[in-house]
Write a protein that binds this DNA or RNA. Structure first.
Length: 487
RNA sequence: GGCCCCAUCGUCUAUCGGUUAGGACGGCACCCUUUCAAGGUGCAGAGACGGGUUCGAUUCCCGUUGGGGCUACCA
């Protein structure tokens, strides 16, 4: 932005559902640009559709943005609160002659539209009410006949330089005289948006490209209101894996869904940032919010719609999971561990170093926070359960495994020091003495200790468990194997 | 139907007229290795089609095709 004035951007969702990933991406780009340029990022809730707007949705939007780390400047604007100004602006345009009263009812309009469709013609309002003699208009208004306000689209062409698309223009003849104020004197979308954007002094309108065809109407409104035009930037859509517009059919589409799936907000933001935008040239894909702010520029905005790939999101999350400072990861995992019933926040607080070591070992093997929780069981529960598959694979021959486990336990019990190098040396000697490979010792031992075939390195597991629990678990496994052998 | 937008590997993308069209996810193989990950290496994989412009087009222009959006007294 070479413009000297600070950018004022806004995100203006309608509270008719959760915060969609597409909306989140739009919010993110606006926020990134505001933060990058030292401008403002404003939030406006477009709640003028009373039938569909809910407080729950409004709350979901706040929560979603907050979770992502996107903070907004100034007070949140609720569009519904600006009704008086919307009316005043409409009145201003009526007085200036840019707008006229239309007495056609919705039923009449619907009938004419249907008729046009029957003749395979494009329906466009025929402006008949604009041709009404002033005296008749006065008479009908006085008689209390309901009317809407329609914008008289002038002849010509409406053009703007879109920050992502370059020049876009619409012949005005293709734009019909659209309604700006309903018969109940409430504003229609395009009017409310323009009135509010002017009032909020928005200088750059960045939104989804599904709004491209609204733009010429809005530009006409700015001109009729005598307000300076903002810049426009239309972002490409985000589609589902099937190439269609992202919807509920594609599974999770709300940012809240991903939060509950165990996605980190920094990963979500990172992933979303790379959908429809690229720093250009060679670049490292895994970035922190801060790096994104510095790298972001409207120059890198892309035109093509992109497909939301959950697989790449998961990979991205895995990257952030292992790169995040452990102190930042902790508070995101703790609630999940507690919710799983494994432990309490207090216990984790009193075993802080141990907890951090555990997290460090598990996060390498995880893509989602849930993956960490899934692997954490053996380090918290008293009695582990043996996974049938693990037993079938590693304890297939109890007669062979049992004596090895016993020897392992005895070896470990005699260790002067409970550290990985000492354990490893002792156990490898044992394997050699028994004439078997290390795996014959380590694998059955892993099942004895965790009940599973997969875990962090076996020596790390033993350190985590501690000597006592390790030895007790091996003893339990020996018992189990004995009953297995005698059965 | 009308208007508008878009078009590089399956997906996200680099390329700003000249490249063996590069990287990432996913897939496959191998290495590392006590398992699983992580990591490393390698393989397969793309300019929708047709015309121009140009010495030379993925790149610029036009058309075709395909996809998307809008077409309400919704937002």
């Amino acid at each position: 932005m070479t413009d000297a004035r600070p950018l004022r951007l806004r995100f203006a969702p309608s509270p008719t559902g959760y915060l969609h990933v597409g909306g989140a991406r739009t919010a993110l780009f606006n926020w990134l640009l505001a933060r990058r340029t030292g401008g403002q990022f404003l939030l406006r809730i477009e709640d003028t559709d009373k039938a569909r707007s809910t407080d729950d949705s409004t709350r979901a939007i706040f929560e979603g943005l907050t979770w992502l780390g996107l903070d907004w400047d100034e007070e949140v604007v609720f569009q519904g609160a600006n009704l008086e100004r919307h009316r005043a602006d409409a009145a201003k345009m009526l007085a200036a002659g840019a707008v006229y009263r239309c007495f056609c009812t919705t039923d009449e309009l619907a009938a004419r539209r249907a008729e046009a469709e029957l003749r395979k013609e494009a329906f466009k309002y025929d402006r008949r009410c604009d041709r009404l003699p002033p005296a008749e208009v006065e008479r009908r208004v006085a008689a209390g006949e309901p009317f809407v306000l329609r914008f008289r689209v002038p002849a010509g062409e409406t053009t703007w330089h879109d920050l992502v698309h370059g020049q876009i223009s619409f012949p005005n003849k293709d734009i019909e005289d659209f309604v700006i104020l309903r018969s109940d004197a409430t504003p229609i979308y395009n009017h409310a948006v323009v009135s509010d954007d002017i009032a909020m002094a928005v200088t750059l309108v960045m939104r989804g490209d599904d709004h491209i065809s609204n733009t010429p109407k809005q530009i006409l409104l700015y001109e009729a209101l005598g307000a300076p035009l903002p810049q426009f930037a239309h972002l490409p859509m985000i589609h589902g894996t099937d190439g269609k517009k992202l919807s509920k059919r594609h599974g999770a589409t709300a940012v809240g869904d991903y939060q509950h799936l165990g996605i980190l907000p920094q990963a979500m933001v990172n992933f979303l940032a790379l959908l429809g935008w690229s720093p250009g040239g060679e670049f490292e894909e895994v970035m922190t919010l801060d790096q994104l702010i510095h790298a972001f520029s409207e120059d890198g905005l892309l035109r093509k719609a992109s497909v939301f790939d959950p697989k790449k999101l998961e990979w991205m999350n895995g990257q952030h999971l292992s790169q995040l400072p452990i102190a930042e990861l902790e508070p995101r995992v703790t609630p999940a561990l507690v919710a799983a019933g494994y432990t309490t926040a207090e216990h984790l607080a009193t075993h802080h170093d141990w907890y951090r070591t555990l997290l460090d070992l598990l996060r390498v093997r995880s893509r989602l926070i849930d993956d960490i929780v899934r692997q954490a069981g053996p380090y918290f529960v008293d009695a582990i359960t043996y996974d049938p598959e693990a037993v079938a694979k590693q304890w297939k021959e109890p007669a062979v495994v049992l004596p090895l486990l016993t020897a392992t336990r005895e070896t470990l019990a005699a260790l002067p020091e409970w550290t990985p190098p000492v354990m490893e040396e002792a156990l490898r000697h044992l394997a050699e003495a028994k004439g078997v490979g290390g795996g014959k010792i380590f694998q059955p031992l892993r099942v004895a200790l965790t009940g599973l075939t997969v875990s962090p390195g076996i020596f790390d597991v033993m350190v985590l468990l501690g000597r006592e629990r390790t030895l007790a678990r091996i003893a339990s496994a020996e018992d189990h194997l004995e009953t297995l052998a005698s059965a």
